[in-house]
């Protein structure tokens, strides 16, 4: 790959520079850290959207982008789709439902595969969010399919997590099973014009009433994303949650928890890389691991602790 002056491309507002930088994030290329140090790291607010496939997340996000654009805000979307567990390949199709903003320079959409991120998806998305902020985006949306654990990783990055549901995709038991109610700051029942929407909302309300009382009670918003119905209510709910985060100190607490989590994630990632290098380079260590991975791991940790490997781990 040719060396590019990404910082200059950022300052010139060249989208290709931003796109390449996010690729570097996905590849865990240390050049990104130098770039962010040079650009500063403003962190725009992040709204996460998650829910089962086909609930209308992308269409909702499309409608939300329209609202923000009308206010003159620049919006970036990171849309995460699953990768094939067998080939590692992916079909990333979220752009299809976000065509309303094609060629609008104030909107950037980036598709990401959920797997294959060393150090986890949240590490990659956190850095991507910083890059988007440095590029000048005011709002960031993080969209992910709620089929596994990736939505939990994303909730760890978002300031406000919106869980999207649609009627006909299972009853309330599915919702507590998925554990997804615990991460929701705002609940959306989309496709509210379909039969069963009121019942889905009622079941959600029941579930929420059973949940432990907290200061913030997730509102349930009914929407029809295709027609734009309920979008005002959704935007108000998002604004109220942002206001709550700021007023209650919860935003600060979450931010602090996130940064500490990120520091721990980075240690995990760097240590893993260094350990793999050590195991490759040191035959004796490798044989030790063949016998007992635990013993080998302890030895690796103690060697990392002396600092000799630390510089290498960061390289």
């Amino acid at each position: 790959m040719p060396e590019r002056d990404l910082a200059a491309e950022f300052r010139a507002g060249n989208v290709r520079g931003l796109a390449r930088a996010i690729t570097l994030v996905e590849r865990r290329d240390p050049a990104v850290r130098r770039l962010l140090a040079e650009l500063g790291q403003p962190r725009p607010p992040v709204v996460g959207f998650t829910g089962a496939p086909g609930t209308g997340k992308s269409t909702l996000v499309d409608a939300l982008i329209r609202h923000w654009r009308a206010l003159g805000r620049k919006v970036a979307v990171i849309a995460v789709d699953p990768n094939s567990p067998y080939s590692g390949g992916a079909i990333l199709g979220d752009r299809i439902r976000m065509q309303g903003h094609a060629l609008d320079p104030g909107v950037y959409i980036r598709s990401m595969g959920a797997r294959g991120h060393l150090g986890g998806l949240s590490l990659a998305t956190r850095e991507a969010v910083r890059l988007l902020g440095a590029f000048g985006f005011d709002e960031v949306v993080l969209e992910t399919v709620g089929v596994g654990q990736s939505e939990l990783e994303v909730a760890a990055v978002a300031d406000t997590t919106v869980v999207v549901m649609a009627p006909g995709l299972g009853d309330g038991v599915q919702m507590i099973k998925a554990g997804i109610l615990e991460i929701a700051d705002v609940l959306v029942v989309n496709k509210a014009d379909l039969a069963g929407a009121q019942r889905a909302a009622q079941e959600l309300r029941t579930m929420l009433n059973l949940a432990p009382r907290t200061e913030w009670k997730p509102p349930i918003v009914m929407t029809v994303a295709l027609s734009g119905e309920g979008m005002d209510e959704l935007e108000q709910a998002l604004a109220r949650h942002r206001h709550y985060l700021e007023g209650s100190g919860e935003g600060r607490r979450r931010m602090q928890a996130r940064l500490r989590e990120e520091a721990a994630d980075l240690v995990g990632q760097w240590a893993r890389e260094a350990a793999l290098r050590l195991l490759e380079a040191d035959g004796e260590l490798g044989r030790l691991a063949d016998e007992s991975p635990y013993v080998a791991a302890e030895q690796i940790l103690s060697r990392l602790g002396t600092g000799g490997e630390r510089a290498e781990a960061r390289a």
Partner: peptide, 15 residues
């Protein structure tokens, strides 16, 4: 798109 996915590529389909 599906064949490329199965071959390990990341396909962005625009519709």
């Amino acid at each position: 798109a599906r064949a490329l996915r199965d071959a390990g590529y990341e396909v962005i389909y625009t519709g």
